[in-house]
Amino acid sequence: MSSLFKENDLWGPLDPSAEAGYGEDRPKRKGFFTDTSICIGCKACEVACKEWNDVPADHFDMLGSSYDNSHSLNANQWRHVAFIEQPSSRGRATVDLGMPDVGPPGSGDGAGAYGAAASEDPDASPMDFRWLMSSDVCKHCTHAGCLDVCPTGALIRTEFGTVVVQDDVCNGCGYCVPACPYGVIERRKEPEGAKNVGIAQKCTLCYDRLDAGKVPACAQACPTQSIQFGDVEELRERANQRVERLHEAGVMDARLYGNDPDDGVGGTGAFFLLLDEPEVYGFPPDPVVPTRDLPHMFRQASRAAVTLAVGAAVVFLGRRR
């Protein structure tokens, strides 16, 4: 069964737009490197995305989860900023993030957000808890579960290597929703009268803006360059350097998430620098595209089908009654 699929069709490193059939003159794969270590949680990206893409207002609630009042990525929320308030009981020394605090100003580094090394002495640190903020978005996976399972061809791979829903083709079957390992895509169910209700919705990586040679709205709006847009290859390089620098500065928690083309989804087009385990931010720790196992599933289903056919034949053999 697996021979029905091409090499690395279902997982493994791959240039997704080449696989989708775009020729040699295709643009380089585009994506995001989101460096959460310099996110200040201003939500400019959330707002810019809603404005540019005309995404309807979502429920806006006091959720009791720090400054997070937009809840999650969903049909009406294509960027989502997560806020995590972490007590030091999380078991690691806190690091001066360069955030405003109540202590005396300039507690002594001047080297910017990650200049100071982790402090062993609690008195030397102005805070005993830390903020983590992270702007989440569709990962534009190399092997995108949503795109694999879409039965209508509504989800497509663009020439930029991104994953986009064609609103007029989607039939609202909703299969892409449980297929995504990150819980990104969703069928729009409200507000009534909004466009594309009943249709799967998610970040398009601002396909229209890329077409016009512009930067996506969210990246453009980000005041700290936490959201960096560019060629995925170059961004991966940049991300590696950034992690190295942070490690040298003693921020040993810094790690990349989604940058490895060998990972369970073939690497993501939008990847992240995190300061804690992925699940702290609401990411799956080690996601795998469900279709990786599809050849095996089809094999099992074929065996089961044969079992049923043989069984049904056998019960008619033998005794007349």
Partner: peptide, 13 residues
Amino acid sequence: VSYYGRPIVKPAP
């Protein structure tokens, strides 16, 4: 560990 106990993947609609 999770993010406020919120789901990671989305249930099928």
